[in-house]
């Protein structure tokens, strides 16, 4: 959507620019000074519409796309354009996605308690066996 708006806005501004160029050339050939007569109102309107379309394109280009969580579910973001900056709200979004931005730090080898992890695994696998 944003690309279409960018293209339309650029075309409008290009067209308005060329029209303005032709208008000034015409004034030069007819020996009028450009300060006497302003630009035709259609060029002015075209420029203003072009600017509005370009700004709308830039606003729609920052939209956040939907996420795909670890469980293969499509998750819609809470806010369409920006992300909350408060730590509690930001981490709530990560929990929804079931990812942890600090996983890289928390799972460094030096910080892993291997003995404890093995105990946990033994307990877990034991339960699995019992369930079966």
């Amino acid at each position: 959507m944003s690309k279409i708006l960018y293209i339309v806005g650029s075309i409008l501004l290009l067209h308005a620019g060329y029209s303005s160029f032709e208008f000034h050339q015409l004034l030069k050939t007819t020996h009028h000074s450009s300060t006497d007569s302003g630009l035709p109102s259609d060029i002015i309107i075209e420029v203003l519409v072009g600017i509005v379309v370009l700004v709308a394109g830039s606003l729609s280009s920052i939209e956040i796309p939907n996420f795909l969580s670890v469980d293969n579910e499509v998750i819609h973001p809470d806010h369409k354009y920006l992300k909350p900056i408060e730590m509690s709200k930001a981490t709530a979004e990560f929990e929804k996605l079931k990812i942890n931005p600090f996983a890289e730090l928390e799972t460094r080898i030096e910080f892993i308690d291997i003995v404890n992890k093995r105990k946990e695994y033994a307990k877990w696998s034991g339960q699995e066996v019992e369930e079966k």
Partner: peptide, 26 residues
């Protein structure tokens, strides 16, 4: 930081578009 980047992107596009507009309208 991401929010600030998005804001500055919109403002960059706006100021460039306004610049083009001002050049045409003179």
């Amino acid at each position: 930081d991401e929010n600030k980047k998005k804001l500055s992107k919109v403002q960059d596009v706006t100021s460039l578009a306004l610049g083009v507009g001002a050049g045409i309208l003179a």
